[in-house]
Design a binder for these strands. Structure first.
Lengths: 111, 111
DNA sequence: AAAATACATCGTAATATTGCAATGTACTTA
DNA sequence: TAAGTACATTGCAATATTACGATGTATTTT
């Protein structure tokens, strides 16, 4: 099959999974970190930074945009990409809601 | 292709992506949440809880195990699964290291 | 020991992802 | 306006994921 039965799960589970999927590729993590480092916005010279083809970077950027974690603004013939701060915090909180459901580690407490 | 060029990225990026990939399916998020709710360890009656076949659940459990986020102990003919507290915290910190690289949202600050 | 139970693994079909060359679109400069 | 630049989209090949029936393995019960 290869098709996820998303109707079996609740909205939170589907949403978290969707965002996680976007983070589930090192190139996309690298893109995010690049945008973080250059705390000003940066355009698509990511092609130089990472060693991937222009079409590939463009595709990754689209996926990052699809969950709103980054946004792009047209700036002449170039496009400025940057983190979307509001969405960033939303996503951060979404993950921490899950992570905080478990108390901090007490080694050996488990089965 | 379909094969990730993981040699282009650093270890942190590859590791985070690997963990994110495991969280990138609602069934696996659901399994984790089920293990969290029943704060004692629970066995594989996840098949009942989620509406997936036994083989499918087993496969998801294996992926969760592969990054160490859960662990299973043989208990007679059954197997008890539970969160690995140490690894849980590690993963939580790994994500927050990324998330905390950006200050909390200041709407409209972006491009 | 035979049957039953619980889970893992294998094999396979359907679908999704990754990567890139080629091409399209929009702006810019000569 | 033509050529150049920056990025998106399309189309495709290689590979990965998802789901599950069938089967294997270990333990438990009868």
């Amino acid at each position: 099959m290869g098709v996820t039965k998303s109707d079996l799960f609740n909205e939170m589970q589907n949403e978290l999974a969707t965002v996680a999927k976007v983070l589930a590729h090192p190139a996309r993590v690298a893109i995010i970190q690049h945008l973080l480092k250059s705390n000003a916005c940066i355009n698509g010279d990511l092609v130089q930074e990472l060693g991937l083809a222009q079409a590939t970077i463009s595709q990754h950027l689209r996926e990052l945009k699809s969950v709103g974690i980054i946004q792009g603004t047209i700036e002449g013939s170039r496009i400025s990409y940057c983190i979307n701060p509001v969405r960033w915090t939303e996503i951060k909180n979404q993950f921490n809601e899950l992570f905080d459901q478990y108390p901090t580690a007490i080694p050996g407490e488990c089965c």
